[in-house]
Simulated scan of single mutants.
Amino acid sequence: MRIGIQTGYWSRKPPAGIVEALQQAEAAGLDSVWTAEAYGSDAFTPLAWWGSHTSRLRLGTGIAQMAARTPTATAMQAITLDHLSGGRFVLGLGASGPQVVEGWYGQPYKRPLARTREYVDIVREVIARERPVTYDGEFFTLPVGEETPGATGLGKALKPTVHPLRSEIPILLAAQGPKNVALAAEIADGWMAGFYAPSADAEHRELLEAGFARRAEERSRPEDFEVAATIPVVVRDDVEAAADLVRPHIALYAGGMGAKGANFHKASLDRLGYGEVTDEVQRLYLEGRKEDAARAVPTEMVEEVALVGPPAKVRADLARWEQTALTTLLVQGDPASVAVLLG
């Protein structure tokens, strides 16, 4: 199992010391670095900057929001970063949720699975650069015709002027719902999981197999399929003290990263058997009682989705993830904790 670093969202400003930390991670043998975006920093620019200071780390968007860019714009950025990094780029894509898509990007959040299929089709076609790109879908049309309101009818089918370094750039889909997970296995080169718990590994494998069964013959073989998940890692002598640093993270996602009836992160935790807990966490969080929401997260729930505690315990617990379908564990934690994980 490969180990990478998930840098997550920026808060008020760029993370301090990140270039030096990534250089040390590369020297220590880590596989990759991944970025995220919501409605602050974007996922691509940091990879270009940080990637220029490294030579081996894979550079992944984890994730780039599809609503933020047209498929062709995303493909342009992927081609550009792949060239600049010498073929180290990995494109992680996600549909996000209705609060962000409709509130931040001003787009309707409807039929995200169907939209994802079209989006990935177009990205792949641009990167392949075999012919001018045309597409006639429900969500995307290239080029638009004069029947489209506001269009001139002068649109022309084009292909990128830049010749891609690789005709195929790996695409991973972020997914949490059962249908989304199966879709990732069907059309993508990998799956980026949210709140991956070893206790649910059998269910995840079944969903992946269902998707593989519908996979087009020309796509890569399932054994090449990447399964990546972000796992918070906090090494402290006291388990409760370590868990205390993860509780706010879980409370944020279960309580605040999505509308009350459309929170995909909460739904993932619900499927682990914590429905009553997350209901309470969400209630407290939406009432503005964020600290109380964090305190409502039980330690056993933290240990389901994170590695916490003394060094020996963290290393022993890691074995549970090593026996799952995960191929890439993305560590989210302070440098000292990451160092312990690497042994």
Rank of each mutant, 00 (worst) to 15 (best):
V120H: 00
K260H: 13
G194I: 11
S32Y: 05
A78R: 06
Y39N: 09
L341T: 11
H265M: 12
Q99L: 14
L330Y: 01
G150I: 11
T327G: 08
W321E: 11
L142S: 03
D31F: 15
A28I: 10
E287D: 13
Q23P: 04
T80V: 07
L286A: 10
L245W: 03
V233T: 06
P178I: 08
A68G: 15
L341C: 11
G97D: 11
L284N: 01
A21E: 15
E186P: 11
L330V: 06
T324M: 09
L272Y: 08
R214M: 10
A213Q: 14
T54R: 05
Y105M: 09
G137A: 04
F139D: 10
P335V: 11
Y135C: 05
A128I: 07
M257W: 14
D237Y: 04
P232F: 09
A182S: 15
E276F: 02
P112N: 03
A128Q: 08
D334F: 08
L93C: 03
N263E: 09
V302C: 08
I5G: 04
R315H: 13
R214S: 10
D121W: 00
A339F: 03
G51D: 09
R289V: 02
G309N: 07
K313Q: 13
S337C: 04
G153A: 06
A193H: 05
L207Y: 06
A339I: 00
E102S: 15
I231N: 02
A293M: 04
E280P: 02
E300G: 15
L91D: 00
N180P: 04
A293W: 02
D270A: 11
S85M: 07
A200C: 02
I122P: 01
D82G: 03
G86M: 09
E102D: 12
E206K: 14
A64N: 12
L286C: 11
I127T: 07
Q323S: 15
L329C: 08
T278V: 15
K313W: 05
R131A: 15
I171F: 02
S55G: 12
T61Q: 03
W321G: 03
G145F: 11
T299Y: 04
W10S: 06
E186V: 09
Y39G: 02
F264M: 13
T299D: 08
Y39L: 08
A210F: 02
A200N: 13
V308T: 10
A267R: 12
A197G: 06
V162M: 08
D317K: 14
F44I: 01
A213K: 13
L93P: 00
S199M: 08
E20Y: 02
Q65R: 12
V340N: 07
E125C: 03
T72I: 14
T70R: 01
G40R: 09
V33G: 06
A294P: 09
T7Q: 12
P143G: 04
F139L: 12
P160L: 00
M76W: 00
I127E: 02
V246T: 03
V19H: 04
L81K: 05
T54N: 09
R289S: 09
Y285K: 07
E217N: 07
I127K: 01
L207Q: 01
T327Y: 07
A267F: 05
E226A: 10
Q176L: 14
Q176N: 14
G97I: 05
Q323R: 15
A229Y: 02
K179F: 06
L172S: 02
K266A: 14
G145A: 13
V239D: 10
V234I: 15
P108H: 12
I187V: 14
Q6M: 14
G17W: 07
K13A: 14
R215K: 10
H204N: 05
